[in-house]
C-alpha cells in the first residue's frame, strides 16, 4: 500500500474507532486506568489530609522535597508529579488494559463481540507479556526526554535545540508511538509471543509505517492544548488559582484516555486491514 493509501486508511480507522466512543462495553477496561489516574490525582491534591498524609507526605517529601508539602507549591509541582505517576500507571495498568481493549475491539469488528470480563481475562492471562512488550516504549520516551534535558543543561547544548526541545520530544514520542503501535494487536490478535512480537515490529513498521505515524500523530494533537497550559503551571499558581492546575491535569488525563481508546481501536482496524495480512504473507 502506498503512503497516501496508508494515511487514508489511518483516518478511516480513526473515524471508525471514534464511532465506537459511545459503546460502554468497550470502555469497561479503560475505567481501571481512569480509576488509577483519579486515585493518583486525589492523593496529590489532598496529600495533606490525615486520611492520606500518612503515606502521601513521606513519598512527596522524598520525590520533591519539603516544598511539595506546602500550599500552593504542590500545584506548581502537580503536572510533573502526576506525569511520573502516570508512567507507572501506563506500564502496569495501561498495558494490560490496552491489551483487553484490543481484544474487545477485535471481537467487535469481527462481528462476534465478547463481554468486557472475557476481554480482561484474556489480557490478564498475558499480563506479564503485555507489560514487558509495552515497557520499552515508556523507557525509550523517558530516556530520550531525560537525555535531552541532561545534554542541554549539563553539556550546555545549543540554544536553538533548547528552544526546540518540546517539539523534538513530541516528534520522538510520535515516532516511538508509531513503532510500538502494533505491539498489542500482534500479542492479542496475532497471538504471538513476546520475542516474536518484538522481532515483528520492524516488519510491521515497514508495511504500515505511514498508517502508524498518522495514527500516532493524530492521537497527539488533542493533547497539545492542555499540555501547553499545564507547562505554565508555575505561572497559573503564581498569578491565578492554584487549583486550576489540578483541573487542567484532570482534563489532560481524560483527553489522554479518550485518545488511547481511539488509538487502540484505530490500530486494531489498521492491523486487520493492512499489517496483519502483510505479516501473515511474510510468514508464509
Amino acid at each position: 500500500m502506498n503512503p497516501l493509501e496508508q494515511v487514508v486508511l489511518a483516518f478511516e480507522s480513526l473515524a471508525h474507532a471514534i464511532r465506537q466512543l459511545f459503546r460502554p462495553s468497550l470502555w469497561a477496561p479503560w475505567l481501571l486506568v481512569l480509576g488509577a489516574q483519579l486515585v493518583v490525582l486525589v492523593v496529590l491534591w489532598w496529600f495533606a489530609h490525615p486520611w492520606l498524609s500518612w503515606f502521601a507526605a513521606p513519598v512527596l517529601l522524598r520525590v520533591s522535597g519539603e516544598r511539595a508539602l506546602h500550599y500552593p507549591d504542590i500545584f506548581g509541582l502537580l503536572p510533573e508529579l502526576y506525569a511520573r505517576a502516570d508512567v507507572v500507571i501506563g506500564v502496569l495498568v495501561g498495558s494490560v488494559v490496552a491489551g483487553a481493549s484490543t481484544a474487545l475491539f477485535a471481537a467487535r469488528f469481527s462481528g462476534r463481540p465478547i463481554p468486557p470480563s472475557q476481554g480482561m481475562r484474556r489480557a490478564l492471562s498475558r499480563a506479564a507479556v503485555l507489560v514487558l512488550a509495552n515497557l520499552p516504549l515508556s523507557l525509550l520516551l523517558m530516556g530520550f526526554s531525560l537525555g535531552l534535558d541532561w545534554w542541554l543543561v549539563a553539556r550546555e547544548g545549543p540554544a536553538m535545540i533548547a528552544r526546540l526541545a518540546p517539539v523534538l520530544t513530541l516528534g520522538m514520542a510520535v515516532v516511538l508511538q508509531a513503532l510500538f503501535i502494533w505491539v498489542n494487536p500482534l500479542l492479542m490478535i496475532g497471538g504471538r509471543s513476546l520475542t516474536e512480537t518484538l522481532k515483528a515490529l520492524p516488519r510491521a513498521a515497514s508495511h504500515g509505517g505511514w498508517t502508524a505515524l498518522t495514527l500516532a500523530a493524530a492521537a497527539t494533537i488533542p493533547l497539545l492544548p492542555t499540555q501547553v497550559l499545564v507547562r505554565g503551571a508555575e505561572q497559573i499558581v503564581r498569578f491565578g488559582t492554584p487549583e486550576v492546575v489540578g483541573w487542567l491535569v484532570l482534563i489532560q488525563a481524560l483527553i489522554a484516555l479518550v485518545t488511547a481508546f481511539v488509538l487502540t481501536g484505530g490500530s486494531v482496524i489498521a492491523y486487520h486491514s493492512l499489517v496483519g495480512p502483510a505479516l501473515e504473507g511474510d510468514d508464509l
Binding site: 495533606a48 489530609h49 490525615p50 486520611w51 492520606l52 498524609s53 500518612w54 507526605a57 508539602l69 506546602h70 500550599y71 500552593p72 492554584p242
Partner: peptide, 24 residues
C-alpha cells in the same frame, strides 16, 4: 482499617495546608 488510617496522618500537616490555603 479506614478509621485506623485516618488517625495515622499528621494533623499538623493538614492544619498547615489549610492555614496556607486560607492565607493565599
Amino acid at each position: 482499617l479506614a478509621m485506623l488510617l485516618a488517625g495515622c496522618g499528621d494533623p499538623d500537616l493538614w492544619a498547615r495546608y489549610q492555614a496556607e490555603r486560607g492565607f493565599w
